[in-house]
Write a protein that binds this DNA or RNA. Structure first.
Lengths: 213, 213
DNA sequence: CATATATGGTTGCCATAGCAACAAAAAGAG
DNA sequence: CTCTTTTTGTTGCTATGGCAACCATATATG
């Protein structure tokens, strides 16, 4: 339980305080094997999930049945917070274990409507967490709105440079995931990257990019 | 102040309880004339804004300097909640008065970190409000990810039908705003709507649509 | 009522990017 | 080290949709 002190949801709380709060809300741990579904797209849930060990992905299925990975969660990442917070909404994603994975589920209503004095702090943390998820999504939307592949790539790389610092940096996504993120064809992405390199705008090897804007 | 009892932020609270909470947090009312800027894109703010009277728009400027309207706020709508909640982020939008407009600003930190027992309820409401904004944005992202104009339009109309109920319904956006929302050219949208009507998929007059899917 | 100003529709042109299919390189597995 | 499998790059074809320019209709304004 020590890792929960590092969790954004419990930021500012000691181990014993966290245990104290958890005692007022129903919670349970569950293990999942590789590929097991943790939350189905369309489910309505009232739990917050915290990845205690292992990894999980958030996937989405397009109308055409194509599978798109929309998020990647490692230790201490939270899911279901926005979904529970919205109350009554269906999950837009399927959450699936990658390798073996251990998850702590906490009853949302009991956690939130708890009269425990420290629950207040948890709510504040939750607001910050959800707000930041909103902004991450907002940034992606800005990129998706751009019309050309080149402008999308540039916008993404400028963003990453700003986050990573320095004109040379590495990105977290492989070509497939990057193409999904930008909302373009993988081949179109590769093609445009080549052109941009030829035009002297960027250089790259694997996931390491240099931006000469 | 009576209208605040209808506000999502103060849901479940009486007029006197709201007044009580407000007394613990710095707040001020301000009027804006038509076209006046309420929040500049890039601003870092620590206030929640509530539209008491009039209307305001959230605008965004693309790298090319084009202006896009991303939201429309009427009475009792809240803005700045997600921005304040994320702490330290720059506003992605410019908020501008449409006609004369009266806004109540509430200090975010004092409201959230208030020890007032009812502040807890406000936080719960805020989580719900922000979560729903997240989902509205998420829905739009799904649509933006689609490749063809037709699939975007269909996805949007199916969504609206579901919300409005019935196969004939009216939409809130005019052609310009709809095109922005879908991330396509206005002319391309008009063209595709004509084709879809010719193909017998839909019918429409002005903002009234019928979906024959 | 006439004029101005949004708002919506149409169309030709053509660059862009989707699609498909394949090649090359890199990473894993035996 | 060889054989798979994954990841990335390449390329031809073609439909799509951006762009621009214009017309039509509706709504506001004096």
């Amino acid at each position: 339980m020590k890792i929960l002190t590092e969790n954004t949801l419990f930021k500012g709380l000691s181990e014993s305080q966290i245990a104290d709060i958890l005692s007022t809300a129903y919670h349970s741990e569950k293990s999942f094997r590789d590929g097991e579904i943790i939350v189905h797209q369309g489910d309505i849930i009232n739990n917050i999930g915290i990845v205690l060990a292992g990894n999980a992905t958030g996937k989405k299925y397009t109308p055409e049945g194509e599978e798109i990975i929309v998020s990647y969660m490692d230790t201490n990442k939270i899911f279901g917070d926005v979904l529970s917070g919205a109350i009554g909404f269906a999950s837009p994603v399927t959450v699936q274990a990658v390798g073996s994975c251990r998850v702590l589920f906490i009853d949302y209503n009991q956690l939130l409507y708890s009269r425990h004095p420290l629950a207040h702090r948890v709510l504040q943390n939750m607001i910050q967490s959800i707000s930041r998820k909103y902004f991450a999504q907002n940034k992606r939307m800005d990129i998706l709105m751009l019309k050309s592949v080149r402008s999308k790539v540039l916008s993404y790389l400028e963003w990453q440079r700003q986050i990573k610092g320095g004109k040379t940096f590495s990105i977290d996504l492989d070509r497939r995931l990057l193409a999904d993120f930008l909302g373009v064809e993988r081949s179109a992405l590769s093609r445009e990257l080549s052109r941009m390199k030829a035009d002297g705008l960027i250089d790259y090897h694997k996931n390491n990019f240099t931006l000469f804007v």
